[in-house]
């Protein structure tokens, strides 16, 4: 396979993720969109690692997976906290802070 196939696939995944973060109103779906972006990065890293015949790209992916798990853990906890207080995880309703 060609390198650019991986890069295009990753770029499309990345764009879908950014679109999701910007348009989704449900807090959990926003978190999932961020996961999409991180997975796009993982595809890039593995593809480049294969290109350079270098292990550090794949090692990096393992770190990214671990960090993504930690991030989602914290994110879901915050979403849960908001849901307890407001009975809603709609991002658009989070409008207490403005000036």
């Amino acid at each position: 396979m060609f390198l650019n196939q991986f890069l295009f696939f990753a770029a499309i995944l990345f764009s879908i993720g950014v679109y999701g973060v910007l348009t989704r109103k449900n807090g959990v779906l926003v978190l999932m969109s961020i996961e999409l972006i991180l997975n796009a990065v993982n595809i890039n890293l593995v593809a480049f690692g294969a290109l350079h015949q270098d292990i550090s790209g794949q090692v990096f992916v393992l770190f990214v997976i671990a960090v993504a798990a930690a991030e989602v853990g914290v994110g879901l906890a915050i979403v849960l906290l908001i849901f307890r207080n407001r009975r809603s995880i709609n991002v658009a309703e989070a409008d207490l802070l403005k000036g």
Binding site: F14, G27, I34, A40, G75
Partner: peptide, 22 residues
């Protein structure tokens, strides 16, 4: 307000670190 701040910080921060990672 604190939870809302945390949520906004989290979403935008996670997005920016993902872009950083890219």
């Amino acid at each position: 307000e604190s939870q809302e701040a945390g949520f906004k910080y989290f979403i935008l921060g996670a997005l920016s670190s993902a872009i950083f990672l890219y």
